Amino acid sequence: MKKSYAIVLCFVFMNIATSFAQQESKHNLNALLGKWKIDMSPYDKTDNNFAIMIIDKVSKNSIEGTFYRKGVRIREGRINTLNNYIYGALVSGDNSGDYNTSFYLKNGKLYGSTHSLKKDFLAVWEAVKE
């Protein structure tokens, strides 16, 4: 009887793992590659507050590139593909400290936020690929 339960549990876990693998494989991570123009204040269409993010490498669970200013390398770039979206998170920074950024891809557009502890702000942004 215990052996039957163990076999059933193994079967259930294998199905769950297969389901996650299939869900992840549906996503085209290469959609993240390229130059993204980030509107740092999308609610105000009269300003020119833009930044650039270049994603030049993606893998199963990571991204590499630059964020905000030319030469500021993305650190700890990660990808997650659950819930039918591609999610990303990264660390960047400048002379004022580190920035924690997260985003998701929806309909060819990135929606994200960037948090700076030292500058005491949270920017909500949208980005389109150039």
Rank of each mutant, 00 (worst) to 15 (best):
S25M: 08
S41N: 12
N30G: 14
K3P: 02
Q22F: 14
A17I: 03
V12K: 01
N28T: 13
L29K: 15
T18R: 14
N30V: 13
A6V: 11
E24M: 05
F20R: 11
S25Q: 08
F11P: 00
K45C: 01
S19V: 14
L29W: 04
M1F: 10
L29I: 13
S4L: 13
L32N: 04
Q23Y: 09
F13D: 00
K45Y: 00
L29V: 12
L9H: 00
Q23R: 14
P42F: 02
M14W: 03
G34Q: 07
N28I: 13
F13I: 06
A21S: 09
S4V: 10
Y5T: 04
T46V: 00
N30Q: 12
A6E: 04
K26F: 12
Y43S: 15
K45H: 02
L33W: 09
Y5V: 11
D47S: 04
S4D: 09
I16H: 05
M1C: 08
G34H: 09
Y5R: 05
W36Q: 06
V8F: 04
I38N: 04
V8H: 00
L9R: 01
Q22T: 15
M40D: 01
V12C: 01
K45F: 00
A31C: 11
V12W: 00
A21N: 11
Q23D: 15
V8A: 07
L29D: 03
D47Y: 00
A31R: 13
A6Y: 09
S4G: 07
Y43I: 05
L33N: 11
G34N: 06
S19E: 13
A21R: 14
K2T: 07
L32E: 05
S19Q: 11
D44G: 01
T18L: 15
T18F: 13
T18W: 14
T46R: 00
Y5E: 03
N48V: 04
L32M: 08
V12M: 02
W36R: 11
A21D: 09
G34S: 09
F20P: 01
K26E: 12
N48Q: 12
K45R: 02
H27Q: 14
S41H: 06
F13H: 01
L9P: 00
K3N: 12
T18G: 12
K3T: 10
M14K: 05
N30Y: 07
D39Q: 05
Y5K: 06
A31G: 12
F13A: 10
Q23T: 15
M40E: 02
N30I: 12
P42W: 01
I7G: 03
K35V: 09
S19G: 14
T46I: 02
P42Y: 03
N28C: 06
Y43Q: 11
S19I: 09
Q23V: 09
L32G: 02
A31Y: 07
V8T: 08
S4H: 10
C10W: 03
Q22E: 15
H27M: 15
I7Y: 01
A31I: 08
K3W: 05
F20K: 15
N48R: 10
L29P: 00
S19A: 15
I38G: 01
K35Q: 08
K3G: 06
S19Y: 13
T46L: 02
I7Q: 00
N48C: 02
D39K: 10
T46C: 03
P42K: 02
S25N: 13
N15L: 14
